[in-house]
């Protein structure tokens, strides 16, 4: 197997002025190229701190991060950041352009890309997020969900090797969310895009290959969606698992482990 795309070792971080409690303590994990890793856990579990450290917005106080085999530090961070794109929760904090097109092109302009090539990239990225019709619109006047898709297009236009989504889908309506999840799924498979998604949305987590569960700055569980949903009873779960838990609680006939919705339908009516 090739070198992991992201390798995190013994990573710790404590915010100044928030007491002695570490936001992240001694976290170790790795993500292979083309893998989709979801990180779940309650607010304050350390998920966003992890994202900030991965893109170099925060400096690790101890431990190390390797991106594509290379150590992330002050000398390498600018080069490594080109491989990474991050989309945050609130898109209003990340708009620059006066039109959707300009905004998506911003990152490419920074890389001094020729205009003709830039146009192709921008058009491609807007198509991926389903916003081709709004090229000329003013980003500040779009709805929350549309804004978020512009922000995602801006990152995809850069064709990063690693896409980090920090609660990036919360403003989307369920349909755009499902569409975007399947677009990313396809993209991950076709281009070996590595995805790390930090989320509360259990459907988003269920779309991943692997889930890390965080609590109080530590990783407390690591497994496939099936393993995680069957064992982490206190966390939310996709619908089929919630139904299974209710049936169990009522002492009714129920599957012995997590099933996807399709499996559950078959199981209920063989």
């Amino acid at each position: 197997m090739s070198e992991p795309m992201i390798e995190v070792r013994n990573l710790s971080y404590t915010y100044r002025g928030r007491g002695e409690k570490s936001a992240l303590s001694s976290v170790t994990f790795s993500v292979s190229r083309g893998e989709w890793l979801a990180v779940i856990g309650r607010n304050g579990a350390g998920k966003s701190t992890l994202a900030g450290l991965l893109v170099g917005l925060l400096k690790p106080q101890s431990g190390s991060i390797r991106i594509n085999g290379q150590m992330l530090d002050e000398t390498s961070e600018w080069a490594l950041r080109r491989h990474m794109g991050i989309v945050f929760q609130n898109p209003d904090n990340q708009f620059i352009g006066t039109t959707v097109e300009d905004d998506v092109a911003f990152g490419l302009e920074n890389e001094n890309m020729p205009v003709a090539q830039m146009k192709v990239r921008v058009a491609e990225a807007l198509k991926l997020v389903g916003l081709s019709g709004l090229r000329q619109a003013d980003p500040s006047r779009l709805s929350g969900g549309q804004k978020q898709r512009v922000a995602i297009a801006g990152i995809l236009a850069l064709r990063p090797d690693i896409l980090i989504l920090d609660e990036a889908f919360v403003m989307l309506d369920p349909k755009s969310r499902r569409d975007l999840l399947s677009t990313l799924r396809r993209l991950a498979e076709a281009t070996h895009l590595t995805i790390l998604s930090i989320t509360h949305d259990m459907d988003e987590a269920a779309a991943s290959n692997r889930i890390l569960v965080m609590q109080d700055g530590k990783i407390v569980n690591d497994g496939t969606p099936g393993q995680i949903f069957s064992t982490e009873k206190d966390l939310g779960a996709p619908f089929s698992e919630r139904l299974r838990r209710i049936l169990l609680a009522k002492g009714r006939r129920a599957p012995d482990q997590y099933m996807t919705e399709e499996e559950m339908v078959d199981w209920l009516w063989k």
Partner: peptide, 30 residues
């Protein structure tokens, strides 16, 4: 999805997983 798969209509419009569980109990599937 289940009604399409089974060809059997469950009683009522189920809005939550609790209501769906009750409907499944009523038709004797669980």
């Amino acid at each position: 999805k289940l009604e399409k798969h089974s060809g059997v209509a469950l009683p009522g419009v189920c809005l939550t997983e609790e209501e769906l569980a009750e409907a499944l109990i009523k038709v004797g599937r669980v």
